[in-house]
């Protein structure tokens, strides 16, 4: 049984979102307070048209480009790390973690999911050990 991680809605600031490094945001994107968009020195974040990013989410580009496709919806408290592509109109439920794994256009990801490119990608609750 997968532990459903707590949804922490206590961003450091509730007035602003933060941009650090090379981040391009298309007009019309909606970015909630407490969101952190961080691109490492060799990396970029590119956010498409009409994207929504919920409160307290963190996007961290590392080792290349992190792209969020047009119309993607990213719930509250989502963590996305790496040099990956999130496709157009992807819908990511709150409190999800995505690390070093791209997501195809139109995908719907349940809240609290873990998608990651470790040895055994384990988006399925069953794979929780013990």
């Amino acid at each position: 049984m997968m532990h459903s991680p707590p949804l922490q809605l206590l961003p450091v600031s509730t007035d602003h979102y933060w941009v650090s490094g090379d981040v391009a945001i298309a007009p019309g994107a909606a970015i909630a307070p407490g969101v952190l968009l961080q691109a490492d020195p060799d990396s970029q974040i590119v956010i498409g048209v009409g994207v929504c990013i919920g409160m307290g989410s963190i996007l961290h580009a590392s080792g290349g480009r992190l792209t969020i496709g047009d119309g993607a919806m990213i719930g509250a408290g989502v963590l996305i790390v790496g040099a990956i592509g999130i496709g157009d109109r992807v819908c990511i439920g709150s409190a999800t973690t995505i690390s070093n794994r791209s997501v195809g256009s139109g995908t719907l990801i349940p809240p609290g999911s873990l998608l990651c490119a470790e040895s055994a990608p384990s988006p399925q609750p069953e794979s929780a050990a013990d």
Binding site: L114, E118, A128, D130
Partner: peptide, 23 residues
């Protein structure tokens, strides 16, 4: 690893806690 809960226990040195585990 990721999305783990460790509560009310003493995890000995050198252990691996797999993703999603509730200990």
């Amino acid at each position: 690893m990721m999305h783990v809960l460790i509560q009310n226990v003493n995890v000995p040195a050198g252990k691996l806690v797999p993703s999603g585990a509730i200990i």
